[in-house]
Amino acid sequence: MTMDHDRAYANGAFIAGADSYPPRWEAAARAFRAALGPCARLALPYGPQDRQRFDLFLPETQPRGLLVFVHGGYWMAFGRESWSHLAAGALARGWACAMPSYTLAPAATIPAMTQEIAHALATASAQMPGLPLVVTGHSAGGHLAARMGCTDLSLAIQPARVVPISPLADLTPLLHSRMNDTLGLTPQDARAESPALHALRPGTSAHIWVGGQERPAFLWQARALSEAWGCPWTVAPGRHHFDVIDGLADPASPLCAACFDGI
């Protein structure tokens, strides 16, 4: 049987009320920023391009470290503005949280996005030198977060931990999907940009997170990365691709524990 890669990586078609999630995310993020007042530093540049900006959210006390969250959208959609509320868990634990946007396809290639996130990490970390850095991200952002843990990538600052959530860890199946008409992945780039085909950076720990109700392809991707890196992976019961990230807003959640415990 030939695999239908478009169906395998379709998420919204298999989530009830999928269309209601983006406006809810945007409303929650907007309210969170407004309530945070001066502890929200918005649209800080990490490069010269329009989308090379990050928002930095600060706790009320001296930060214990920095969490960077990289948004998803199959490298083709969304921006940092939709996810601000997910910083709540980090702030309650005394951590700062940075959320970068990055140039989307087709204006940028995935290798270029990887480099943009590397620059965002360096710029955001310079705001609080000497503090530990944890990188997480969801879906395509999970891929980019995982890339920050790969040995082949030269970084100005090394993450203490990476926690990819529902990551795309092996990009080679996407070569056979219609989305590649926009992504423009070559076979060489697909292999080079696949975290599951690289070793985990020495000195960086990792924990892979995925929802139990996600598409089988995402469960496979998460397990493949966990096996390649020899690190733990958690299948969150009852969570699908759109609500698997909700735990980031709750400081007591198992997902927050996976990000911060032991750091």
Rank of each mutant, 00 (worst) to 15 (best):
C231Y: 11
P164E: 05
F32N: 00
I263Y: 11
P216S: 01
V210N: 08
A31P: 00
F218S: 05
E227L: 15
R201T: 03
A16H: 01
D261H: 10
P100T: 01
D261S: 12
R64E: 04
S82F: 03
L225N: 04
Q52T: 05
A29H: 07
S125D: 01
C97R: 08
Y74T: 04
T204N: 06
R223V: 10
A92N: 08
A124G: 03
F57N: 01
R161D: 09
P132T: 09
P164A: 07
A8G: 02
P173R: 09
P100C: 01
D261I: 02
G184D: 07
A96H: 12
S125I: 00
A10Y: 02
S139W: 07
M128V: 09
R239V: 01
A108T: 03
R93W: 04
Q188S: 09
Q188W: 00
R33E: 14
A217S: 14
R223N: 14
A249G: 08
L58N: 09
P132L: 09
A236R: 11
M128H: 13
W233T: 01
A31T: 07
R41T: 12
Y74I: 02
Q49W: 02
G141Y: 06
S101R: 08
H119Y: 00
G230H: 12
F69D: 04
S139H: 10
L66M: 12
P187V: 07
T182Q: 10
W95G: 06
A224I: 00
G212N: 03
M99I: 15
C256A: 13
V210L: 08
V68H: 05
L91F: 09
I263N: 09
G72P: 13
A169F: 10
I110V: 15
A190S: 13
P111V: 01
Q158R: 15
L104C: 04
P45C: 03
W229F: 11
A13M: 00
C231M: 11
C150N: 03
L155I: 10
R161G: 07
P38M: 08
A190H: 12
F32W: 14
R33D: 13
M128F: 14
P237I: 13
S154F: 00
A27P: 00
G12C: 00
D261N: 14
R80Y: 05
A98M: 04
L197I: 09
D246A: 14
D243R: 08
A10Q: 14
P45Y: 03
D152F: 04
V68Y: 06
F69I: 07
E214G: 11
